[in-house]
């Protein structure tokens, strides 16, 4: 299970983002094909969403990019590195938050830095800044169970950002958060993203969310997952400042996405 790691480049000041190339990737679980010949190129600093009916292999693809899931065929490049296991440039936000229930917010946010060998003092400082960025100052000593779902996911985001990732992978991060909280969180995410400029791959099954956040939306077909369509989202940024959700362009794109997805059901 142990994987070869590149030298710990935690909190590196390297370029803020990297390109991802997924080239002809196939993956099967036993006899069940999950992904078939998937090729996607995510530009450096791009915000890309993966959407598709359940069972289309969105999460499998995301885990493959993260190096958590070996693929059967094809290859994945993250910047110059071919992915063979988890690497230092990636960070991930999980649908179920994946917080350590026995650790405080502070320690949870420090966890990635700890595993990457960052010294205690720097860890505390970096984590403190990340906690402030996601708006959780004052909750450093709280335990996850004491926080609402939205706040827990803010901890997850702070932990992901604390390691200064060039690539941020998000696996349906807002799926279990209520609608109001989710909208606020989406705006905060866009604001943070325009500061950090990491490359983002975002898995979702909300059409509005995909259109609102992304530069491009990749639609995967179900069982087995293939790239069905790629939809450009030419809406102006910053979207969180203007009322993009109310615009005709936004509605039209969501509708277009729905028409694509409806045929896939």
């Amino acid at each position: 299970m142990a994987r070869v790691m590149a030298a710990p480049a935690a909190a590196s000041r390297a370029p803020a983002s990297l390109e991802i190339v997924v080239d002809g990737v196939s993956k099967a679980f036993g006899a069940m094909p999950a992904l078939v010949d998937v090729s996607v190129r995510v530009g450096a600093g791009e915000f890309l969403s993966l959407i598709g009916p359940s069972g289309c292999g969105k999460t499998t693809l995301l885990k493959a990019i993260a190096g958590l899931q070996p693929v059967d065929r094809g290859r994945i490049l993250v910047g110059p590195r071919e992915v063979r296991g988890p690497g230092p440039e990636c960070s991930m936000v999980f649908q179920d938050f994946a917080l350590l229930p026995w650790s405080t917010v502070q320690r949870n946010v420090e966890f990635g830095l700890l595993l990457r060998g960052v010294a205690a003092a720097e860890r505390a400082a970096v984590a403190g800044r990340a906690i402030a960025k996601v708006g959780l100052d004052g909750f450093e000593q709280a335990y996850p169970a004491q926080l609402s779902g939205g706040m827990q996911q803010r901890v997850g985001l702070a932990r992901a950002l604390a390691v200064r990732p060039q690539i941020l992978l998000m696996d349906e991060p807002f799926a279990s958060i209520d609608e109001q909280t989710r909208r606020l969180f989406q705006d905060d995410l866009l604001a943070l993203w325009s500061e950090e400029r990491a490359t983002v791959v975002f898995v979702t099954h909300s059409m509005e969310e995909a259109v609102y956040l992304s530069d491009r939306v990749v639609v995967l077909s179900p069982r087995p997952g293939r790239v069905h369509r790629v939809l450009d989202v030419p809406l102006p940024r910053p979207r969180e400042a203007s009322d993009v959700r109310a615009s005709v362009g936004f509605t039209r794109l969501v509708d277009e996405l729905w028409k694509i997805l409806r045929k896939l059901q």
């Binding site: 142990a2 790691m5 988890p86 230092p88 991930m92 999980f94 938050f97 994946a98 350590l100 390691v163």
Partner: peptide, 26 residues
Amino acid sequence: TERSLVDMARLFGAGELALFGRIYLP
């Protein structure tokens, strides 16, 4: 043990020993 906790730790570079001590055991 939650699958996602294990994924999370591995993503941050945890080896077998770290997985044991920091995820599985607690």
